[in-house]
């Protein structure tokens, strides 16, 4: 794509191939790698999760593991120098909140087509981001 380069593009990554494909598209839209913000959102763990009960995992260690795993994946795809962010909570809300804080011009994400029943039960992170985002959202349908 030969668009005017944008500053601050946010790409949510859930480690799926589709989300990394969205990253490839987003890379073409920025001039500098550092303009690309990669965000991974982790769920808040239940208090009865065995690792929480026995204090063998905590939010810091989870965040560190996720950050390391994300950087490894990005490095494999020769996507170095990006800004990597890990947050906790509902993916839709966290991505929107981060995009606003970072002054993003665009959010790029991938979306799988879902059946009506699955949409009703699970909903869609993409739908929530589109509804709540302060900036344009590019949804790449896979």
């Amino acid at each position: 794509m030969t668009w005017l380069p944008r500053q601050n593009v946010v790409v949510p990554i859930d480690f799926s191939d589709d989300s990394f494909a969205a990253l490839e598209t987003a890379r073409e839209m920025v001039a500098e790698a550092s303009d690309l913000h990669v965000i991974h959102v982790l769920p808040v763990l239940e208090p009865a999760e065995p690792g929480i009960i026995w204090h063998t995992i905590d939010d810091d260690s989870r965040s560190q593991h996720a950050q390391d795993a994300l950087e490894r994946e990005l490095s494999k795809r020769s996507a170095d120098g990006l800004r990597v962010v890990v947050r906790f909570g509902d993916p839709g809300h966290e991505v929107v909140q981060y995009a606003e804080q970072a002054g993003a011009e665009l959010v790029v994400l991938s979306c799988k087509g879902r059946s009506a029943l699955t949409r009703l039960l699970i909903g869609s992170v993409a739908e929530r981001i589109v509804r709540l985002a302060h900036c344009p959202v590019l949804v790449l349908k896979r």
């Binding site: 808040v44 239940e46 208090p47 009865a48 929480i52 009960i53 026995w54 204090h55």
Partner: peptide, 16 residues
């Protein structure tokens, strides 16, 4: 208090 309030210490003590 534990499952909605998220007070992890109570859950840990009760289980241990």
């Amino acid at each position: 208090l534990v499952i909605i309030g998220g007070i992890r210490r109570i859950a840990a003590t009760a289980e241990k």
